[in-house]
Amino acid sequence: MMKGVPYLVTVALLALASTLAFADDPSPLQDFCVAINKTEVFVNGKFCKDPKLTTANDFFFSGLDKPGNTENKLGFNVNLVNVDKILGLNTLGISLARLDFAPYGLNPPHTHPRATEILVVLEGTLYVGFVTSNTDNRLFTKILNKGDVFVFPVGLIHFQFNVGHTNAVAFSGLSSQNPGLITIADAVFGANPPINPDVLAKAFQLDKTVVNYLEKIF
């Protein structure tokens, strides 16, 4: 019986190491690392301000009480509070966003390559969902009302659509100081320079004239 214990401990340690290795953002090695911008070099994160020079304002942002402008083709606006807006978020692995929807407004299919997202509805009714990876492309959807919460796993394509007759408001927490955003239609049909239309025509099984049209509007 005792011979099995070291094996189980080894398995547990390997599992823990694997979990840590795939964490979204590196774990901090100090209380905080308030960011400073040094544009001449790039690092995986940001340089740290001297802790002695840090103030409360480095951990503060104001304005998420204000509705975003949804007068656009999607009827949607997002106000992301990431490390660029709160420098104290650097190394802390978290950010926040306010999402505003006009009636029938849409946050189109997109991914966050570096973050899981958890969303709570404050006002209105949202139809939300995500699609699993290429193993089966399974779609998970839910109708959310005020007070409801939904989770979108890291890297998976997901969306939110206001199915109500009134404005909708939601807040999202994201497990990265800089979650990233890839809007599928914009990335595929709005790439700069454009992706060869022959590639997209074959990939989406579309006529090339349709691909040319989509690349023009995006």
Score class of each variant (00 low, 15 high):
12 A>Q: 09
104 Y>T: 11
83 V>T: 09
136 D>M: 08
140 F>L: 11
98 R>N: 03
28 P>V: 05
94 I>N: 02
35 A>K: 13
121 V>P: 01
63 G>N: 10
16 L>P: 02
10 T>W: 14
197 P>N: 11
9 V>C: 10
132 T>S: 15
136 D>A: 10
182 I>E: 09
146 K>A: 08
59 F>P: 14
177 Q>L: 04
74 L>C: 07
110 H>V: 09
117 E>S: 07
38 K>Y: 11
33 C>K: 01
48 C>I: 01
85 K>I: 02
37 N>S: 14
79 N>S: 15
199 V>I: 15
51 P>Q: 00
126 L>W: 00
80 L>T: 12
125 T>K: 13
144 L>Y: 01
102 A>G: 09
6 P>N: 14
42 F>I: 00
184 I>F: 02
61 F>H: 13
172 S>T: 05
74 L>A: 14
28 P>M: 05
101 F>N: 03
55 T>C: 03
60 F>W: 12
153 P>H: 09
150 F>C: 02
158 H>A: 03
69 N>M: 07
129 G>Y: 06
128 V>N: 02
32 F>I: 02
208 K>P: 02
197 P>K: 11
64 L>A: 08
82 N>K: 05
6 P>G: 12
163 V>A: 09
189 F>D: 02
44 N>H: 06
174 L>C: 07
118 I>F: 01
93 G>S: 08
119 L>Q: 07
162 N>T: 04
121 V>E: 02
131 V>E: 12
49 K>M: 11
45 G>C: 07
75 G>C: 02
208 K>H: 10
105 G>Y: 01
147 G>C: 06
